[in-house]
Amino acid sequence: MKARVTVTLKSGILDPQGKAIEGALKSLGVEGIASVRQGKVFDIELAGADKAKAEAVLKDAADKLLANTVIENYRVELLS
């Protein structure tokens, strides 16, 4: 089973990298962008096929390591 964990900064947390990317897009002439916040995507392959179990494993992985929940939120998606 394939899954994706997306980690993003909580709203209100300053994101200097996102700001720099936003500035770079503006200087490239890409129009219509109001703001950019960057994050991380983890594509994960799971050994079993049990959906409920997979979600629990991914949540555990995100809480223990993938996200720092002081500043980050995460979202777990089962892809197949």
Partner: peptide
Amino acid sequence: CESGLLPGVLMRNARL
């Protein structure tokens, strides 16, 4: 900070 022994987090320097 990451180990939970201290609160908070060290973010990317404000001017990168």
